[in-house]
Amino acid sequence: MPYAQTSFFVEPWLKYKKPIVRQLAFAIASPNILSSIPSELSIAHSFNLHTNEHWQEHYKNYESRLEQLDLDSTELDIFLSKLKSTRLGLRFEMFFWFWLLDDKYHYYKLIEHSIQIIDGPKTVGELDFLIFNNKENRIEHWEVALKYYLAEKDFSLPFWYGLNRSDTFARKLNHFTQKQFQFSHVLEQEISHKFAVMKGQLFLPKYHLNEMHPAWINPARRLGTWGTTILPPSEEFYRLSRQEWICPDLQKTSETARWWTDGLYFQRKNQHHYMYRNTHLLTP
């Protein structure tokens, strides 16, 4: 059946004033872009997804802390200043690291972050987070990813492309199941459950929104659209800065678009994200 997107979204991250706090709130509160593991994915090592309710619960428990940080974000600013890279995925991972260390607000205890698995002279893998779940009394492995994929052709898994043409949804999920979730024992701990925390946004072709869409798209997460044609100026899109891909700032950070380059554009009135791509990038 065609994808039916809800008309109401729970997006509490938009209420915060400071950009860094809005981004932290998005990291915690936003649902996964997947509602289920795609059936077309060949599973080598199984993994799970958290429910939408899981993230809503953790946001509610953390809301008072976010309000404090919105008044004074010094602690968060200092923590994020340790990151020297401009990569959004690493910045996103830092927000989770900060939250997991804030263990007065949840039932997790961070055992270790960024664990390298060494076999002789070779690094055979790396784990983002190894966590003890006090509520369930178990060890969990989380892989955290911030991804933006746009759909082409028949919307099947291999035809969702990221910013880099070689970065496809299929490749990322295959990497999860074949490589990243291959370990069952780490740091003398037996891993009970493995979770992919995969957030960001998916983009559908602007003129194909009513076509059949995969059942694994999470309807709780707002979709964007994409195209290679310039939208009418009356739609008032402006280009988002790099960090605003996580969450747009409260105030506009650029003028309404009069010309277009590759990247993500935003319409504040309708909370609409539009990915503009030059046609030469769409060739295999």
Rank of each mutant, 00 (worst) to 15 (best):
M1A: 11
Y3R: 13
S7C: 09
P12H: 03
Y16V: 10
Y16F: 15
L24S: 09
F26Y: 08
A29Q: 06
S30T: 08
N32R: 04
N32K: 05
I37Y: 15
S42Q: 15
F47C: 10
L49K: 15
K60P: 02
S64N: 10
D70S: 10
E75D: 12
F79Y: 14
K84I: 06
S85E: 14
F96Y: 12
F96D: 04
D102V: 01
Y105I: 06
H106G: 13
Y108V: 08
I111W: 04
I115W: 08
I115Q: 08
I117K: 14
L127K: 07
F129N: 07
N134W: 00
N134T: 02
R138W: 00
E140A: 01
H141I: 13
K147A: 01
E152K: 12
K153Q: 14
F155M: 09
F155G: 00
F159T: 06
Y161F: 11
G162S: 02
G162R: 03
G162I: 08
L163Y: 01
N174C: 04
Q182E: 12
E190W: 01
S192N: 14
G200W: 00
Y207K: 15
H208C: 11
P214G: 11
A215V: 15
P219Y: 07
P219D: 08
R222E: 09
P232S: 15
S234K: 15
S241N: 12
W245M: 05
I246C: 02
E255W: 00
E255M: 06
W259R: 10
W259F: 14
D262F: 03
L264V: 09
F266C: 02
Q267K: 15
K269F: 04
N270G: 04
H273E: 13
M275E: 06
N278Y: 04
T279N: 05
T283H: 07
